[in-house]
Computed example of a mutant assay.
Amino acid sequence: MPQQFTQATYHSICDKLATMDTDFADVIKLYGYPPFWSRPNTYESLVHIILEQQVSLASALSALNKLCERVGKITPAHVLLLTDAEMRECYCSRQKTDYIRYLAEAIISGQINLEAFEQMEDEDIRRQLTALKGIGNWTVDVYVMFALHHTDVLPIGDLAIVNAIKRLKGLPKETTKEELALVAEQWKPYRTVASMLLWHYYLASPKPSTKGRA
């Protein structure tokens, strides 16, 4: 079973990362510890992450709240009762409606067992979830980080993480994801918490000026 972190161990892991990488020490000194981002291990949490694909967090939360208003509790059975028109009224695109339904059907059929994931390795979870249409590596990464609290996940498909590493390390914008993943090797076995620090830095720090750029 992979190593997990808890709210009780979160700050101590941040402190370990600060000793491993002085840039993280600077982030904590300037902006404090990152929030303990966490979500329950539920169908609703996975729906929320699907809704966050390729859109702003605010837009995704609006859609999730609309679904909550419509069905009361977001469960596979409740969501499968909604018509296409009702899903559209909840700000769900046709594609995401399909993805949310595929996941609901997989859970109801027993193909996916979220409770069983709590005892499984990352790659076994990834293999099962990415077999479903509409669930890729980014969705799995965020789920494993936020809902299962696995300690060593780097969501290299996340644009904010990519930009945060480049900015924190002063790397050129053309630095590849493969090169960034090599940078992140130094943060093992705490790359999830390193990612939390990077998101915190990305959200809290002043954005670089774009004046004079084409």
Rank of each mutant, 00 (worst) to 15 (best):
L132S: 05
P208F: 01
S59E: 03
H78G: 09
I107N: 00
A106R: 01
A85G: 06
A106S: 09
V71S: 04
Q95L: 12
I49H: 02
L171I: 09
L132W: 00
L57V: 14
T176Q: 06
L180F: 04
S62T: 15
T192L: 07
S109A: 02
V162M: 13
S12V: 12
P172E: 14
T6K: 13
Q53S: 12
P208L: 07
D122F: 13
M20Q: 15
L171S: 03
D21E: 10
T6S: 15
H150W: 11
L57K: 06
E86N: 05
W199F: 02
I156C: 11
M120L: 08
Y31L: 04
S62G: 05
S56A: 12
S56T: 14
C92M: 13
I100M: 02
R101I: 05
N137F: 09
L114Q: 01
T6I: 06
Q119G: 07
Q111W: 00
F146T: 13
D84K: 13
E118I: 01
H78M: 10
K16P: 01
V79F: 05
A77Q: 10
D124M: 08
P155D: 08
I112T: 00
T22P: 11
F36T: 05
H200Y: 03
A104Q: 03
I49C: 03
M87V: 02
V142C: 03
G134N: 09
T22I: 07
T176A: 09
V55A: 01
I135S: 05
Y102P: 00
I161L: 12
V142W: 00
T75E: 01
Y190Q: 04
P189I: 04
P155C: 07
E123F: 13
F117I: 00
Y201H: 12
A204K: 14
V142D: 01
V142K: 01
E89L: 14
G32P: 01
A184K: 00
T19A: 11
K73S: 13
Q111A: 02
A58H: 11
F5Q: 02
W187V: 06
N137Y: 15
D26V: 10
L67K: 10
L182V: 14
L67H: 09
P2E: 07
D124V: 13
R101Q: 11
E69M: 15
E105M: 05
L61I: 06
L51E: 02
R127S: 15
M87N: 08
E115Y: 04
E115G: 08
Y102H: 14
M145W: 02
A131T: 07
E89H: 14
G72D: 06
I107R: 00
L182K: 15
D84R: 12
Y202V: 02
H149Q: 11
V55K: 06
T130E: 10
